[in-house]
Design a protein around this nucleic acid. Sequence first.
DNA 1: TTCCACCTTCCAATCATTGGAAGGTCAAGC
DNA 2: GCTTGACCTTCCAATGATTGGAAGGTGGAA
Lengths: 131, 131
Amino acid sequence: MNIGELAKTSGVNAKLIRHYEAIGLIPKASRTESGYRVYSEKDIQFLRFIRRARSLGFSMKEIKKLVGLWRNKSRASREVKALALTHVQTLEKKITEMQEMADNLKILARNCHGDGRPDCPIIKGLENNGE
Amino acid sequence: MNIGELAKTSGVNAKLIRHYEAIGLIPKASRTESGYRVYSEKDIQFLRFIRRARSLGFSMKEIKKLVGLWRNKSRASREVKALALTHVQTLEKKITEMQEMADNLKILARNCHGDGRPDCPIIKGLENNGE
DNA sequence: TTCCACCTTCCAATCATTGGAAGGTCAAGC
DNA sequence: GCTTGACCTTCCAATGATTGGAAGGTGGAA
């Protein structure tokens, strides 16, 4: 199978598959005589694994670890769980931060007339807020 | 005032102030004979405005618009509010996405023993999940 | 004059991806 | 056999916001 078909079946586009190869996340594909990359069913599985990890927000660095654990049949589930829960914490921290941003902004926006007048609590809020 | 003092008083580090100048977010500072950038009180205000906008999660592009509106004394508050509420939506969309990631991951993690055994629902969840 | 903290520019790295250019390959239709 | 078009290749660059470092000039105080 060529890279195009792998892209279609795995849901990871061809450009990105090449990139993953370049950064060493996936092994170098074997090639046809003319230089085309050749893939097998296993690669579909592999890229889907990566795609799903991405969709859970894991970084490439974390995904490399996950892939290592995935392939290591004698892994300790403890390690996987720790990685996952650390990531959950990271996510929740970001969520909290963004929620605070949204809340603060909504408070400012609520008091803004939102009409043709220049007077605007949002601008005022950005002008002076401590320090 | 030199860039270092501006950095301290505004809360935006010197490196970043130069960068903001380079991308045209702030005007080019005047210079001493020896080439040092010179700033005034107004610049403190300006950079604080930018810092606060950043802390609300606005992108540089949006901040450019906000700065334009800030300086335009005949702005319509409608425009500011629209910009703010669009940004709130962007934030809330991201929050929702990340919340889903965290929730999904927590579900997987909850069923994981997290001990020395290799068996792991998190890995399984990444292995097969539709498609 | 020496020392250190400060300033300057320029170039590169981060992170994960996407884009384009320039060119080679493959299979189908004529 | 030739052309067409879809596919493949590599390489380099941009995204967005910042941070890092190198290499060198400046300012003021001891």
